[in-house]
Design a protein around this nucleic acid. Sequence first.
RNA 1: GCCGGGAUGGCGAAAUUGGCAGACGCAGCGGACUUAAAAUCCGCAGGUCCGAAAGGACUGUGGGGGUUCGAUUCCCCCUCCCGGCACCA
Length: 869
Amino acid sequence: MQEETTAPGGNPRSNDERYDPQRVETKWFARWQNDLELYAAEADSAKKKYYVLEMLPYPSGALHMGHVRNYAIGDALARYMWMNGYNVLHPMGWDSFGLPAENAAIQNNTPPRQWTLSNIAKMKAQMNRLGFAYDWSREVTTCLPDYYRWNQWFFLKFCEKGLAYRKKSKVNWCPKCATVLANEQVVDGCCWRHEDTRVEQRELEQWFLRITKYADELLRDLDKLDGWPEKVRTMQRNWIGRSEGTLIDFKLDYSQPQHHGFGPAGATIKVFTTRVDTIYGATSVQLAPEHPIVADLAANNPELRAKVDQLIAEQRKAKEVGDIGEIEKHGVPTGRYAINPFNGEKIPVWVANYILMDYGTGAIMSVPAHDDRDHEFAKKYKLEIRLVVLPVSTDQEETMTEPPLPFVAHDGMLINSGPYSGMECADAIKTMSAFAEQNGFGKATVTYRLKDWGISRQRYWGTPIPMLYCEKDGIVPVPEKDLPVILPEAIDIAHALGSPFGGLPEFVNTTCPKCGGPARRETDTMDTFVDSSWYFYRYTDAHNNRAPFDSKTAQYWFPIDQYIGGVEHAILHLIYSRFWTKFMRDLGLVTNDEPIARLFTQGMVIKDGAKMSKSLGNVVSPDEMIARYGADAARLYSLFAAPPDRDLDWQDSGIEGIQRFLGRVYRFVETHARPQDPNWRGPLPGQLSVSNRNLQRKLHQTIKRVTDDFRGRWHFNTCISAIMELLNDANRRALGSEDVQNPSTGEVVKGETIPPALMAEVQRSMVLLLAPFAPYLAHELWEMLGEKGSLLKAPWPKYDAALAKEEELEIPVQINGKLRGRVVVPADATEEFVVERALADEKIQSAIAGKQIVKKIFVPGKLLNLVVK
RNA sequence: GCCGGGAUGGCGAAAUUGGCAGACGCAGCGGACUUAAAAUCCGCAGGUCCGAAAGGACUGUGGGGGUUCGAUUCCCCCUCCCGGCACCA
C-alpha cells in the first residue's frame, strides 16, 4: 500500500495511506474502455425505459467546464436511473457541421472533415476519461453522410408537403471576399476579414421551411410542457409572438387631379392593428421605408426617394448596432393621401423609420392619441392628435375628463367614433372587425412574430440541399433513390469561401432526372439547426440505412424523459426541435406531439464574476483539473459548488476541498472495511447502543435526503453535503470505536465498537450514494468492500422511514418570539409535556418571571412559543 | 421600457410547507503528529458589547414599510446585479 509515487498535486507522497485518483481512475478507465456493452441500452426490455439526454456539443476540439457540468448532471441521473432498475438510454453525438471547421481549414490548411473528426476523437477521449456512461454504439456525427442524408430526405418530405419554398431574402455580402457572411462574421457593419469594407445587403433566393404553419400549435402545446422551466416557455411564447388584430385596407386617394399620372392605380395599403377601435382617431398612415408601395410612390419623385433612402439607412444601421427601438423617429410625407374606410376621411401617407417591414404588413394607421410611438411621432411633426377613447371609471366625472395622452389602456369607451361612440373597446374591436369583413375592406386576423425558417446557408461545411435547377423543368428535387447528395470533399477551401461548390463543375453539373437534360445543383447548404432538430430520434436507431429511424423503436423511447442543456438554446434549437417533431408526426413517423417531456437548463460556469473566456484569461481547463485532482473531483465539484440551475462560481480552492473529501471517504473504507469478518455480511445485532443507533439513523436520513433530491429538485450540492455529513459522523464514531489516548491527560478511553454489519451497511450505502457523482472512486471502493456484482446496476439503497425518524428532539422555546432556551423531549411529545419541561427550565423561568403567559403556540416537533405579558 | 432570475458570514452556499439563520465546503485561527514542513487528525469561528472564564446581552438574511405569537420565506414600495426580449403596430 505504501508506494512512493508522485501525488496529483506534484508533492511527494507521505507514508500514510492516501487516495491517489490517478491510480484508481486509470485502472477503472481501462476496464470500462474494454467493455463496449457496458452502457448499452437494452433493445427488447421488459424494464421501464428512461431516456436521458444532454445537448450534444460542437466538436471545437476541447471540452470546457460548462460541458463538464452539463454532462456530470446527466451522467448522475443516468446512473441513478440504472441503479433504480430502468432501461436507460444515454447517448452522445456531435453537432459537427458549421463555420469553425471552415475557419480552421483556412488557418491551418486542414480539410474541415479531418479537422472535425480529429476534434471529435479528442473530445470523445476527454468524455471517456471523465467517466461518462454513454452508449457509444449509437453515436451520431451529423457531418457524416450516414446522418445528413436523412436531413436531405426530410427536406424532400418538406417539399412534398409544400412546407419548403423558395423566396428572395437578404444576406450579408462582402464585396472583397465576393461571398456571403454569417451574422457573426459582420463586425460593426464591416467584414471580419476586411475591416475597411462595409458589408452589403444582397437579395438571394433562399429556401424556407414553413414553421409558421405550426405557430399556433407550437404556442398552444407550451401549456402541456409542464416539465419545462417556466422561463423557457415564456421565452418561446414571446418568440412566437401571437397577436390578435385586424387587417384594414386603406385605398390611396386619386380624387385630387395632381395625383393622376403617378403612383400605382387602384392601390390599397393594408395595415395591421390590434386597436381597430381607435380607427376614428387615425390621422395618418405610416409606411415602412422598404414597403413595396413606397418605391412606386417615389418613382417619379427623386426628392422623396432620397429621403426614403436615408430612412432605410437609419434602420439598417440601428439593426446592425442592435438598438432598433432606440433610434430617433424620423419620417417624411409622401404628399399622397389614403382613405379611412370607416369614415371616408383622407389622411396623409407618410414613410417613417419606426415602421418595420418584417412585422405585420409593414404599414400602420397612426393613432397619436392612443399609442406611445404614434404620439411621439405626431408631436414631432405636428400631426393631428384626436381623442377617441375615454377611460371608463365608476366615477362619472373621471370618465368624462380628458385623460393624459397618449391613453393606451384597453378599458375605455369610444367617443367621436360615429356609430361606435359609446361602445367599450373590446366590443368595438369585434363589431368593427366584423363590419370591415362584411364590407370587404378588412378582417380580424392573427399575426405572429415568428417567421418561416430560412435554412439556406451559402457555406461549404453543411448538408447540401438536394435540389436541382433544370432549364426545362425548373426546380427539381433530387429523387430519393439518389440520396445522399455527397458533400464534395476534394476542394481547396482556402480559395473557395462561401458557396465553394460554384467552382466545382463536377459537383454542380448534373442531369435532370425528369428530362435527362443538363441541370445545375443547388450549392447552398442547410442551417446546422436542421441537424440538431431531430438527432435525438436517430439515437434510437442509429444505424438504420432505410429510414431516419424505425417508428416503433422511436415510439418506445420517446418522448425524451429528461433533456439537459444550457438556456442559450431556449428558443431556436428547442422551437425547431418541437416543429420537426410535429412535422414527423404529420408524416406518420412518430406518434408523440412533443419531443421532450422534461427540460432542465443548467447555469453557466463563471469565474471571478464573469463567464470564462480566453480574453479574460479566466478559463479553467478540464484536462488540467483531471490531471491535478482527478475526474471524480472535477465532476463532484461542478455539482457541489452550486445548485445545478444556478450559475457556478469556479474556485480552485473549492475543488481541493472536494479532493480531500474523496480522500477521506477512501481512507474511511480502507481503514474500517472488514469484508473477511464473518459478521460483515451478517444481520445487525438486535439491540444497538445509543451511539450506533444514532449512526444508523444518520445513514437512513442521508439515503432519504439524496433519494428525495434525485426525485425532486435536483439540488445535488446538498446531496453531496449530506454524504459529507454522514462520513464525518461515521468517521468520528469509528475513530471513537478504537481505544484512544487523551493526549492532554494520558487517559486511555475505551471506545464503543461499531458492529461489523452496521459498518458494512454504512459503507455500502455510502458508496452507492456516491456512485452517480463519483463513479471511479465508488467502483474502487465497491471492489474493496468485496462486492462482486456491478456497481453500475446495483440497487439504489432504500431507507427505512422508521429508522430515519428522530426519537428525541431539541425543541426551541421562544418567549414572545425570541429564542430563550431549548428542551430535549421525545419526538412525539405533547404540548403539555413540552410546556412542563420548558417551565422547569431555569432560563425560561427567569425570562418569564413576574409575567403572565397569555398564549402558547406549539408546533409539534418544531417549537414552543410562549407569549407573555 | 417589458419579462424572468438573483442579493444571506471573508468566499461558494444551506435552511424542501411561515418555526433554532449560516448545514456542508473553502479561506482563517488554535492544537495534535513531525527535528521541521507537507499531508492527516482534533477543535474554534456572523457582528458588536459585557465577562478572567464559563457564560450572557444586543444585533443580523440588499433598503423601507406591512401581515403574524413568529418572516431569509408571504404582501406593498425602492436600490443594485445577471439573463432574455425590445419602435411587434
